[in-house]
Simulated scan of single mutants.
Amino acid sequence: MNSKFNINAYSHIRNDKISLNGDIVFEDETKDFSAFIKSAYKSQGMDYPKFFKMDNLSKLTFIAADLILQSISNSEENIAIILSNKASSLDTDRKYQESISDSNNYFPSPSVFVYTLPNICIGEICIKHQLFSENSFFIFDNFNPHHLWIQTEHLLKTKKANKVLCGWVDFDDSSYDAFLYLVEEHGDLNHTIKDIKQLYLCQ
């Protein structure tokens, strides 16, 4: 399907590596995600203390998005967000269930409960970057570029957004995979389903 819009930037986080537009910006072979993502945060010189209170899905999404949004001028821009995954907030849901089942706790953990919806990670991005546009989070069995393409094209063609940050952010137990990309009028890559698939698989 043809589009008059383009992909301006993209990021990946998987296999102990973080990349922006195909270039690796951080690499750490530690197998522990918590240690990996904290090191990545520090390596990028980020200053957002709330990061350390986030659940793993939000940390993953936050860094993948921040790399892109920091690389562009987004002042006064109407940037929508469309994300997806297959595990929803399952990793955090398990931890919340454990806090309920713990006989030593009288009350379940509210700090964990707040992250028992996958779209909370979108809220963290919006707070940091002061974004007020449309946003959605979808659950699929696998990465679904066709659906993301349709949603993005609609938002841009109807002028409900000037740019759309979209992609796949999945975290389950120790398995993680993030691929985000920014679509707008300008950019070096075509916004087609074929190109989205190729970018997703390229790292």
Rank of each mutant, 00 (worst) to 15 (best):
E134M: 03
E134Q: 08
I122D: 13
C121K: 03
P118M: 05
L117P: 06
V114N: 12
Q97R: 08
K95T: 07
H129M: 03
S101R: 07
I120E: 14
S101L: 03
S99W: 02
S103R: 08
S103G: 01
P110A: 13
S133E: 08
G123T: 10
L131D: 05
S103F: 01
L117Q: 09
T116D: 13
I125W: 00
S133D: 11
H129T: 00
N119K: 08
V114C: 10
Q130W: 00
Y115H: 14
I125Y: 04
V114Q: 11
N119T: 10
Q97Y: 04
I100A: 01
N104E: 12
I127N: 10
I100Y: 00
Q130V: 05
N104P: 01
K95R: 15
S101N: 09
Y115A: 12
L117N: 11
N119G: 11
E134H: 04
S109Q: 10
K95H: 09
I122K: 09
C126L: 07
P118V: 08
Y106S: 12
D102M: 02
I127H: 05
F113L: 10
Q97P: 00
P110C: 06
I122P: 06
P108E: 02
Y106E: 15
K95E: 14
F107Y: 14
I100H: 01
L117V: 15
C126R: 08
N105G: 07
S99K: 02
T116M: 11
P108V: 01
C121N: 13
S111D: 15
N104T: 03
F107E: 14
S111N: 15
F107D: 15
F113A: 08
P110L: 04
H129G: 01
F132H: 11
E98Y: 00
C126P: 01
E124C: 08
E134V: 03
C126A: 10
K128V: 03
I122F: 10
N119M: 06
L117M: 15
S111W: 12
S99C: 07
K95A: 11
N105I: 02
D102Y: 06
Q130K: 10
F132V: 02
F113Q: 12
Q97S: 13
N105F: 06
P118Y: 13
P118T: 14
L131E: 09
C126Q: 11
I100M: 04
P110I: 02
G123N: 12
I120Q: 14
